[in-house]
């Protein structure tokens, strides 16, 4: 194709391509997604503002909202919706390993053992951790 006719829309060769091209052509989905992202961002903002003192629901809700946003961007803007299986073969293992790495860090840095001291009775309750 020369430069001149390059600006013309391509004639889709197959019905599948035609459907895909129509999907790509219309801007409506992108603007709709943008609007959804806007709502989610506002939602996150409000969520964080009003639930700032209850960490449990705060973290749960925010992670959910953030995942939804990230998924929308990846699914529509990064065209994962239209991608073939091989892309998931590349991204899937990376996400899995990211998850495994973070998960296996938890026993060492989050689930900390009880503080050492003189033999403590089994029910130490809210005993303050020693400093230093």
């Amino acid at each position: 194709m020369t430069e001149a006719d390059a600006s013309l829309p391509i004639v889709p060769a197959t019905p599948a391509q035609a459907a895909a091209a129509a999907d790509v052509e219309s801007h409506a989905p992108y603007l709709k997604i943008l609007f959804a992202l806007f709502l989610l961002t506002v939602g996150e903002y409000l969520f964080a503002r009003f639930l700032k003192d209850s960490p449990g629901p705060l973290i749960f809700g925010l992670v959910l909202l953030a995942s939804a946003k990230a998924a929308l961007v990846a699914w529509y803007f990064m065209h994962l919706k239209y991608e073939r299986f091989w892309v998931f073969l590349v991204i899937g293992p990376a996400l899995l390993m990211a998850f495994i790495l973070t998960l296996l860090l938890f026993p060492d840095f989050v689930m900390l053992p009880d503080p050492l001291g003189e033999p403590v009775p089994a029910t130490s309750g809210e005993a303050p951790r020693p400093a230093g």
């Binding site: 590349v90 991204i91 293992p93 990376a94 996400l95 390993m97 990211a98 790495l101 973070t102 860090l105 938890f106 060492d108 840095f109 989050v110 689930m111 900390l112 951790r129």
Partner: peptide
């Protein structure tokens, strides 16, 4: 992008475990 995911996992994963577990 997969390598970038792993790179940010190193940074963000560290942040998450520090954030979750810091006494």
């Amino acid at each position: 992008l997969a390598t970038e995911i792993m790179f940010f996992t190193g940074l963000l994963g560290s942040y998450i475990v520090f954030r979750a577990g810091s006494p």
